[in-house]
Each structure stands twice: as structure tokens, then as C-alpha cells.
Amino acid sequence: MKAVRVHAYQEPPRYESVPEPALQGPWDVIVDIGAAGLCRTDLHIIEGQWEPIQHPRLPYTLGHENAGWVREVGSAVTTVAPGDAVILHPLTSCGLCPPCRVGEDSHCENASFPGINADGGMAERMRTNARAIVPLGEGLEPRDVAALADAGLTAYHAVRKAAARLVPGTHAVVIGAGGLGHIGVQALTAITAARITVVDRSEEALALARKLGAHHTVLAGDDETTVREALDITGGGAHVAFDFVGEQGAELLAPRMIRGRGQHYVIGYGGEVRLPTIEIISREIDVIGNLVGTYQDLVELMALTADGRVRLHTQTYPLEAAGDAMADLAAGRIRGRGILIP
């Protein structure tokens, strides 16, 4: 079969032939990939940012946002059958460690992370396990939901954590309305009562945010002007700011856009959050990290998607054009999410 593989950092991945995956255990599931999402994390992997954290053995196949159809199941699997349409939770978790026991799949002590430290779904087929499988409801197609497996899940996870805080009369600021942020706006609209202000450098992205439910938008430019405008709109600062960019200076804006006792949710990454400790304690602000999401988060997100309350905006590419797709993503030419179709 064909796959997109990383052989060395700082080099473009290769589209090449590799052996097909096979069942190795009773809980394994082989999936025919219908679509694989393209994420900025894939660019960071190629840069080598994940090597100190995950230590993948090169070469391996990219792709951590995957959906498709079950091809083959292990002897213990009863929850899905060949032919079922499914989306895959990004991690294959064990179900036995303390984090798994309380439903925190993304912190499983024995997990593998296909596409990041093991072979992923930028391929015709991949192996996962039964705990990662979420069946798709009627009317949902793999190509329409694949990127929700990580981008959507991560955005929803952050909003879900903050939802209890975002009662009527509160304000949320969303920094970045691209592949992650446009899903975050929809999640905020679906499960919170907050007024939503979106900050982005792109007029096109802001126009999309307004269509998806944003109440206010700010065209980012000079930092001082951008912060002042956000503070004016929110009446002195957001109760929660969601940073879906996390680099190129965006990570420095969110702490300035929240009010006292506000919360800064870090979702995008690549930069550095810099805050004087006196500011943290005097304002009693929180900086909160977000890693993917739980299995239950993905189930809830699929329910919202089936109801038409969350929808991905995508640009599709054939699998063999993965290099072109990554170049478009790096250059900011993709609105929404890039999707690779084997």
C-alpha cells in the first residue's frame, strides 16, 4: 500500500510503498482510511519538535486525524464489524492505567499515538485498537469528519472544560479562526452562552467566524490596537481566552485580553507563554493547557456533528499530493482543514 512517511527531520516526507498492517492482538482493528486530516502538528513533527517528547523510530507514517471503514477486527472485538464507518480517537489507550480508569484517554500511561510515535493514517490502511474506535452515525462520511479526530476534538475539549464558566453575560475571546479555531467557535456556540469575539489576521477567516456564530471580530494588526479593541468589546477583558495559534506572537496576546481571575486556554503551540509571576498572583489568572481530548469528548462531538451543529470547512487533496498540501498549510493558503484522500 501507499503511505506518507517521515525519514528524517527537516526533510519533506516521502510518498512510498510500505507493507500493509496486520492484526497483532485480540483488540486490534484494521481500518481502510477514507480520509486523513492535515494538521500543523505534522509540520512540527517534520521540524523535529516532537522528537524529544515522543521519540518515534524513523521512518514512520504520519497522520493522527483519521476516519474510514473497518476492514478487519481482532478476536476480542465486538463493538464494530467490517464495513462499519468509524472515526479514530488519536491515541490507542490501554484501559487499565489510572488515567484510563477515570476516562482521561489522552494521558494513558501505556498509549501509542499513531501518526506521532507510531504509524498513522496518511496511508491506505492503518492499525488501531478497539478503544479508539467511535462508530459514525448515519449520514456522516469519513472525509467530512476526519479532522475532527484531533483538531475538532482538541477544540471541543478546551471549550468543554471551560463551559461551566461561560454562563450568560460572560465573554470568550478566540484567537485564530483557522483549522482549530473555526471548530472552537462552533463548539462555543453549541454548548455555552458566552458572547464570542474572534481575533485573526485574515478577513476571510473572520468572515467565516461570523457565519459560524461569532458576535464580534477583530482584525489583528498592531498588538496594542488589537488588545485595546478586544478589551473594549469585552468590557475590560474576556472571562476565558482560547489561543488556537500558540506561536508567532499570538501566545502573548491572550493574557492581555482576559480580565482579573480570567482564564487563558493554550491550545495551539510552538511559542512561549511569558508572564511575570507577580501578574499571575495579583490578577489570579489561570493558564490552562489542553492535550487532545477524551473518548467521551469525541462521542459528544460526533453527536453535535450529526445534528449539524458542528461542520468542518475543508480543502481536499489526493494522498500523493501530501507535499503540496503541507506547503499550502505552511503558507497559510488553507482555510479550515486540509484533508488527504487515499
Rank of each mutant, 00 (worst) to 15 (best):
I280G: 05
R309M: 02
H264D: 10
E300F: 03
Q263H: 14
V218Q: 06
A111V: 01
I258T: 10
L231H: 06
G48I: 12
T170E: 14
V31T: 04
V29K: 13
R195W: 04
G260K: 09
A67W: 06
I87G: 10
F242G: 07
D243T: 02
A331M: 09
I334R: 03
R261Y: 05
F242Q: 04
H157K: 06
R165D: 02
K2N: 08
G268L: 12
A172Q: 08
Y60W: 13
R165Y: 00
P99A: 08
I278Q: 09
A22Q: 14
L219G: 14
G336F: 14
G338P: 11
A132T: 01
P13M: 07
D150V: 03
I175E: 04
I280V: 15
D328V: 10
R71F: 03
T294I: 11
E138I: 01
L329T: 09
S112A: 12
R256N: 09
H313R: 12
R335D: 00
G181L: 08
A146G: 04
W69N: 03
D297I: 09
V145F: 01
R143A: 14
A85M: 04
A118W: 00
S106T: 10
P114V: 12
W50H: 09
A214H: 01
L304D: 00
G152C: 03
R201A: 12
P168W: 07
L312F: 07
T154K: 11
Q49E: 12
P318N: 07
A177D: 02
R125W: 02
I46S: 03
Q24D: 08
R14L: 13
Q54R: 13
A35V: 07
V77M: 12
D222W: 02
E203Y: 05
A190R: 09
T316Y: 01
C108K: 01
A158E: 00
C94Q: 05
S202Y: 08
H171F: 12
A118T: 07
L319D: 06
V266A: 15
I233D: 05
S106W: 04
P59M: 14
A254S: 15
S106F: 05
I196V: 13
R127P: 05
V102E: 14
Q49N: 06
G237H: 08
L140H: 03
Q263G: 06
R195L: 11
P59S: 10
V86K: 06
K211P: 00
A8N: 07
T78F: 03
V77T: 10
A207M: 03
A8S: 11
G249K: 10
I33V: 15
R125E: 14
A322C: 00
V266K: 07
A147P: 15
T128D: 02
G115V: 05
D150N: 11
M122N: 11
L166A: 13
L140G: 07
D324F: 02
Q263D: 08
G262V: 02
E124V: 05
S112D: 12
